[in-house]
């Protein structure tokens, strides 16, 4: 294990240790310290450190671990947590079996960032809420009980589903929306057993403790995700991302959709949205509604209305109440070829 320790007295910036273990066990042990944190591509964590949002005392660089494999395991595709976003997006197995995931990844960030970003890091990336990044502003997620700057402030990018009084932030990932739609499972190591968590239960709603984005416990390591192969979905899936510029912008809203058709009838369907909640948002009511129905504009419209039933807005993001259903309808129209 490589250990670099900056002597406190000679510290160039903020003191932190940096270790780069090569085995899972060493990584888990190294990350037991209360203020230790894993670092993978660093595309999110380093920014957060520079802004002073996160101040780890020890960085455990996991990029030396053998966790970047992508392979078919029975009826599943396994993706190691260190697989790079760019590699996953371009991988033959992914393009063939999980094109929805490939599209979602391609829609995210920039080529340079995707070349550094890992699957685990993408899941763990934090919200882009501007108040969260600015230490001079209130933010319950960053500093519990300091207030939520966005609720009565600038909240154009914020949630319309499942927010709480404490926090209305959204999870910014594109990749996770596809994984939620595809019923992936997250594999987690904690030194004892291997935990398996359904993707839709991995991220959490803000509730009363928005400082926690997800249900991963301190010191636990994401080792990979498993995604079931579904030949029909692979034929018919689409990720639509609506943003303020054509590339390199976070989603105003996004829709991941996969369809299994039986003639004109929808046999099975998966629908999830991004940019609308503190977690990738599965549209289960809309899915239920559309199952066994014909793929018609009227049905799609009705499904979109159902999906928006519990939506609320906070001012600047009111447009999402229209943009979200429109994007659902647009995605389903395109997918069904109408």
């Amino acid at each position: 294990m490589l250990l670099v320790k900056w002597l406190k007295k000679e510290a160039p910036v903020i003191n932190f240790d940096y270790v780069k273990p090569t085995t899972e066990q060493n990584a888990l042990t190294a990350c037991k310290d209360p203020l230790a944190q894993f670092i993978a591509g660093g595309t999110n964590l380093v920014d957060l450190m520079k802004r002073g949002v996160t101040n780890p005392e020890k960085l455990v660089d996991i990029t030396g671990l053998p966790m970047s494999n992508i392979e078919q395991k029975g009826d599943n595709i396994f993706i190691g947590s260190l697989a790079l976003n760019s590699v996953v997006a371009e991988h033959e197995l992914i393009k063939k079996h999980l094109p929805l995931l490939s599209q979602a990844l391609q829609a995210g960030a920039s080529p340079q960032i995707r070349n550094m970003a890992t699957v685990g890091g993408n899941m763990m990336q934090r919200t882009r809420c501007g108040y969260f990044y600015d230490l001079s502003m209130p933010c319950n997620k960053r500093t519990p009980n300091s207030g939520c700057g966005a609720k009565e402030g600038y909240n154009r990018m914020h949630a319309i589903f499942g927010a709480s009084d404490k926090c209305i932030a959204v999870h910014p990932s594109d990749m996770c929306v596809a994984l939620a739609a595809l019923d992936a499972t997250v594999l987690i190591a904690n030194g004892k057993l291997l935990r398996r968590v359904p993707f839709k239960d991995f991220h959490k709603l803000p509730g009363s403790n928005p400082e926690k984005d997800n249900n991963l416990l301190k010191g636990e390591l994401i080792t990979g995700v498993e995604v079931p192969i579904n030949a029909a979905f692979a034929q018919h899936s689409l990720y639509t991302k609506i943003r303020d510029r054509a590339s390199y912008a976070f989603a105003l809203v996004s829709v991941a959709a996969a369809l299994e058709m039986n003639g004109k009838t929808i046999k099975d369907i998966r629908l999830a949205m991004g940019g609308v909640a503190h977690k990738p948002w599965r549209l289960t009511t809309a899915e239920q509604f559309l199952k066994s129905k014909e793929a018609t504009p009227a049905n799609f419209k009705q499904a979109a209305m159902l999906a928006l039933k519990d939506a609320t807005s906070y001012g600047h993001n009111q447009f999402k109440l229209t943009l979200a259903p429109n994007t659902i309808v647009h995605t389903l129209h395109t997918l069904a070829g109408i």
């Binding site: 501007g130 108040y131 502003m137 600038y154 154009r156 303020d244 510029r245 590339s247």
Partner: peptide, 28 residues
Amino acid sequence: MEESVIDERYGRWINNNFADYHVPVHAD
């Protein structure tokens, strides 16, 4: 796309970085 966002309660910029203050990329 270009738009400065300032929270008038604090007089502070919300989007003072290149991820949030959008300028055109090639695709635009």
